[in-house]
Design a protein around this nucleic acid. Structure first.
Lengths: 345, 345
DNA sequence: TCGTTTTTCTAGAACGTTCTAGTAGAACGA
DNA sequence: TCGTTCTACTAGAACGTTCTAGAAAAACGA
């Protein structure tokens, strides 16, 4: 049963291996009757079609694109934002009969030679919110694998599909400034706080390019405001909850909290509810992304077309017709009920 | 720059290709000094390490396991249950430096030859809630790829990690029967209702093995109850919402609604809230899985160790030390506030 | 000192496919 | 009728690695 290859089938039918190969890949290169006969014999012999690895080696196409995710895989899935991106990417991948290879990015085994990024058979890579300067990026570059990032990079020859983070955040900042807010806490994703208690950070310690740019944008739009950066852990609802708890229970409450993702903001919303605080009246809350749950919660946020972002990344990697290598997607400030004027004091 | 292979490096250093290969894969097969020299030369020439496809072909190991998901990829991610499974699987995959290959299962291209399941270079496959008899399963079997399912199959030589669906559902059924419920609606995942209006189904029309078994379990524990099966679409909150709306707005309200997944049940919870119905008093609601949100919502549910399920599947596929090929995981009825006695009438 | 084991490296054959170049024969146009 | 184009196929060389078997040299034990 095992060990049935193209050659076996070719010998059985009495044709050359090339012809059997063509029967599978280029049906117009041989007569229909012969093709029928070949496929029938293949079925009979239990031949399951050309071997994927051999094909990949010979043709130079792996039939898969890698997806590099922040930190542990588990966190990635818990954010509807990431899910939306993947859905868009998967849509295009499906169109080109290509699979998605999720690559764990544990920093531990990067040092050793045996990490997934090094080993993976992929034709391209989508880099989703990976900290700038991550060793995996260098490995990819070394291997000569085309990569598309969701962050605007410094190099002019790097591909990306991104938003104007600074401008997007500035829009939100203007909105907050107009409402009279001058004391704002920003909730960010950070590995430091992952295990235990929330931490207060400087801009330099944030690590993720997009987050840094958003903070810059807020600062630009609110030059007279005090901005503090707090993290309750990785990008998840609980982290936002913990970060907000830390802020709300301190002596020094801000008038507004901005989550750099909606899940963080929604976590903060939980913390406010528990404390009997009404968002938009007692304290203003805003997020980023506009995930479905944001609308349900009435969260003021900055919408970005996440599914389109995934699609665009897919097209750049897979569709030869796509020539544009750097795409700036539009964003939109969505004002809902969680933002309101800063309380007078 | 391009075209640098093992041979190029070997020639440059003045050793055989085998030795260069060993420098990467079997460091103890050559002297440390020579290894240093080889790696240094490789770096210099811009060699990024052994080609993944060639290695896969020669060694017979692809370094990836496939994950087959229900229907469109997007739905998969939106359920925390699926996310938990993936997290467990990813954990083991990471340990064995293996990647996860997500395979879109669009039924359209299965007919044609060019589907991902046919093409993918994988060493094994995790089958997650795929309808019984799906053509992709046959393709896998044909290719001789070891597969582990999350459903108990009929064949004794099939690997699976599952729960006793009948028994688990029966526990819940007994709980409901004890509370006096005799009129129950079960909310299920179904493609038929995906586009438009909710549908009422017979057991035969459900399609998913696990769902069918759960319904059997409920029936077994509540022989005198009337059980209706309703679907509002795919497995997502909105589907549960739509399904529950259909049921609640009809003349013929049940006294209890059981979602065959927590997301469905939580959707139903939304529908109840909108109508001013208090769960546990006006109507009993229960789910399946015990995802994190279930605890927060006070949802009565059947807990299953989903992350462990993912881990176990990973071990069966990757860990040679694991010999057990069929695993039954424990379940536990978690009674919370959404279940209460059936109203007298 | 001599046989034995260990270390360190090599030659050459796989692995299963697809690609390039080409051939024989049929069909075609004038 | 003769060149030309098309159709239907084939031979044999890649693709870049790892594996098997083995050889030369070094280390070891008595």
């Amino acid at each position: 049963m095992a060990g049935v290859t193209l050659k076996t089938v070719a010998k059985a039918v009495g044709v050359s291996p090339s012809t059997v190969s063509n029967a599978y890949n280029k049906p117009d290169q041989l007569s229909a009757t012969l093709r029928e006969r070949i496929l029938a014999t293949a079925q009979e012999l239990g031949y399951a079609g050309p071997d994927a690895s051999a094909r990949a080696l010979r043709s130079g196409k792996a039939g898969a694109i890698g997806v590099l995710f922040t930190d542990k895989l588990a966190y990635a899935f818990s954010d509807p934002y990431a899910v939306g991106f993947l859905a868009g990417l998967a849509e295009v991948a499906e169109e080109f009969a290509t699979s998605l290879l999720l690559m764990p990015l544990s920093s531990t085994d990067i040092a050793g030679g045996s990490n997934a990024v090094q080993q993976a058979a992929i034709d391209g890579a989508a880099i989703f919110c990976v900290p700038s300067g991550h060793p995996a990026l260098e490995i990819l570059a070394n291997r000569g694998i085309p990569a598309v990032s969701t962050d605007r990079g410094d190099h002019p020859d790097l591909s990306w599909v991104a938003i104007d983070e600074v401008e997007a955040a500035a829009q939100l900042g203007e909105h907050l400034a107009r409402l009279g807010h001058r004391d704002v806490v920003v909730l960010v994703d950070n590995a430091q706080a992952a295990g235990g208690r929330p931490v207060e950070l400087t801009v330099d310690q944030v690590g993720y390019t997009d987050c840094e740019l958003r903070i810059q944008g807020l600062q630009k739009a609110m030059p007279n405001a005090r901005l503090r950066i707090v993290s309750g852990g990785h990008n998840a609802l609980e982290s936002g909850l913990r970060g907000a708890e830390y802020v709300l229970d301190s002596q020094d409450r801000p008038t507004a909290i901005v989550g750099l993702s909606d899940v963080q903001a929604l976590g903060a919303l939980e913390a406010m509810k528990v404390r009997g605080l009404t968002p938009g009246r007692d304290l203003t809350l805003a997020g980023f992304d506009d995930i479905p749950a944001a609308a349900a919660a009435g969260l003021t946020t900055v919408r970005q077309p996440i599914k389109d972002k995934g699609r665009a990344v897919g097209r750049i990697l897979l569709d030869p017709a796509t020539t544009e290598r750097q795409l700036l997607m539009p964003t939109q400030l969505i004002v809902r009920s969680t933002s309101g004027p800063a309380p007078k004091h």
